[in-house]
Design a protein around this nucleic acid. Structure first.
Lengths: 329, 329
DNA sequence: CCCATTAATGCAAGCGGTTGCAGCCGTGTC
DNA sequence: GACACGGCTGCAACCGCTTGCATTAATGGG
């Protein structure tokens, strides 16, 4: 059995409170006593039980981070940035994956609730009202969704979608498809809204297909509808879908970008390594991770800041988009 | 403040022990009392504090999962499989990422130690002795490393590396490079040992370069040494490096597989989507995740099983390898 | 020489739960 | 009518730790 504070107290001949103070308020204990206690602790392999400590202090120094799909390369940069930011403040990040499942999401928030000081909820799939309810049980910062009254960090995908559509219409495309994301995704709604507006402004048709799984397979599946629709360009909900789309279009004899232009959103690391390299909208995921952690840690100070951080996005033009093929004119 | 067991007891006019039993041993409490208690609990929004419960039961129903790099697509399938297996046994998985850093690794194991029932340590970078020491503080199952006396799940990368080298020599290659993985990686050592043996058997030269970061960038960096060495084939520590290598070789005017054959290890989902599609060694990551969870959960029953599970690997030939270019003959 | 101050430590309550034990009550048995 | 028994509930100790307060001894000032 692991050594407890009592074992250390017994071994060093002091009261447990002195041992406690040796670790959490060293300046309050005499230097000789302290070294003796530390020696005993070291020898017994004693480690304070953080869970027990949290029970009384109310602070765990842990942060929960819930993502829809850990396999989606969009998240790792966010997670890593959050981790390094948390580490700066002496906190640890526990990540949990929900498999795009709203039920699992709720369950995980509750499972984490008492073991962390707060939860970062990334790209949640559950309803706003449920999120609001959960936010009463544990400090919550929502990422990639805007809910009035809750602190949130969002990326301006509306702007990004507009830029992407403008890019495509600028290349002459007038018949464009939007491969939408999963049901329940705020981001997908935003993209859809903004893309539709941008297409209308440019006098282009926008065909929306979906909902689709935000994965390569989702893109592969969407390729069918896109190919049949006979559009000359597609904007995908994310890069993974865009890559799946490219693959699926190839399978139907359509080359990218010669026959169809494809643009994604997220600018995952991979987009630079595929052939053709993907034209996409870069989202500042690392900045979002950092901002979310900062927001959560600031929670304690002036409760209910309910700040909203909206991070700019940027169009990155690479090789998967080009002018309209002549035959389509 | 969130409702505690005492609030519920007060509201329903029973002792806290009855409330406790209502949740953890319902059959012991009268059905009327139970419904009343549940109603009060519901109304107050009471949720048992799992951390407090763990303090006395010693069981958290959480499992820690530590990986070297969450951004490496090798891990997500493992993580997801572990999650779904854990869920079957009513446990939750907390993932933590160490950024390939041995120090962070140790720190995270300790941070998790008391909040989980055990830790799955995947592809650890720290020393065997430290791992052995940690295993005395918390039940540990090691993945991708074999340490005598500790339960472990490994993939037979030695077999995989042999298959890959045999594949390459079978295509006529006699001058092969191995882009090794990071320092501290057991897997990398295994691959190196086995690849060297296989090359020797086939009468081929094996040039080892490294250590390299197990990422695209690591592959990009290794491309230089590989190009200069003038080999006709490369086996990379993992697929990410293989993709980086292909990119780097292209940058130096070498086409894959026309000029140089490249094989990877892991068979990440991506390998099917790149052009050329990657020849690689498939590792059963999902099976490893499941097995590791099962092993950890079986820990309690007959302490110190110290089982070792060795999962078979398989060569997947795609497009990135071909026969030796004529000019090299 | 006495008292106020300060530094160091002990005491005990309590964080939110669980659980062995004891007590209560109503029932069936002999 | 005494008794054993089973179902239900309360009591209190305890998990490992923190922290306000009391206690003690040593120090300095007047």
């Amino acid at each position: 059995m692991p050594a407890t504070i009592r074992d250390v107290a017994r071994a060093s001949g002091v009261h447990i409170s002195t041992v406690s103070r040796t670790f959490s308020a060293p300046h309050l204990v005499n230097v000789e006593t302290r070294t003796r206690v530390l020696a005993c602790a070291e020898q017994l392999g004693y480690r304070p039980n953080r869970a027990a400590r949290a029970l009384i202090t109310g602070r765990t120094c842990n942060i929960g981070l819930i993502v829809a799909d850990i396999a989606n390369p969009f998240f790792p940069p966010l997670i890593k940035a959050a981790e390094s930011q948390a580490r700066k403040h002496d906190h640890h990040i526990f990540v949990a994956d929900t498999n795009e499942d709203a039920i699992a999401e709720e369950e995980l928030v509750r499972a984490l609730a008492k073991q962390v000081d707060g939860v970062l909820l990334c790209s949640p799939r559950m309803s706003n009202s449920l999120i609001e309810q959960l936010s009463r049980e544990v400090p919550l910062v929502v990422v990639n969704r805007q809910i009035t009254g809750l602190p949130a960090v969002v990326m301006d995908v509306a702007q990004g979608a507009r830029l992407a559509i403008e890019h495509l219409t600028g290349l002459g495309h007038r018949s464009i498809a939007l491969a939408a994301g999963p049901r329940g995704s705020w981001t997908s709604k935003e993209i859809r809204r903004s893309a539709a507006a941008a297409a209308r402004t440019a006098g282009a048709d926008l065909l929306v297909t979906g909902p689709n799984a935000p994965t390569e397979d989702g893109g592969l599946a969407a390729a069918d509808a896109v190919a049949k629709a006979g559009v000359t360009a597609v904007l995908a909900y994310n890069d993974l879908m865009a890559l799946g789309l490219i693959e699926g279009l190839h399978g139907r004899g359509l080359r990218v970008p010669r026959d169809v232009s494809v643009a994604g959103i997220d600018d995952i690391a991979l987009s630079r390594l595929t052939r053709p390299k993907l034209t996409t909208v870069a989202t500042p995921t690392a900045a979002a991770g950092r901002a979310a952690v900062d927001m959560l840690l600031a929670y304690g100070d002036d409760r209910r800041t309910t700040a909203l951080i909206n991070l700019q996005t940027e169009l990155v033009v690479r090789e998967s988009t080009s002018t309209v093929p002549e035959k389509a004119l």
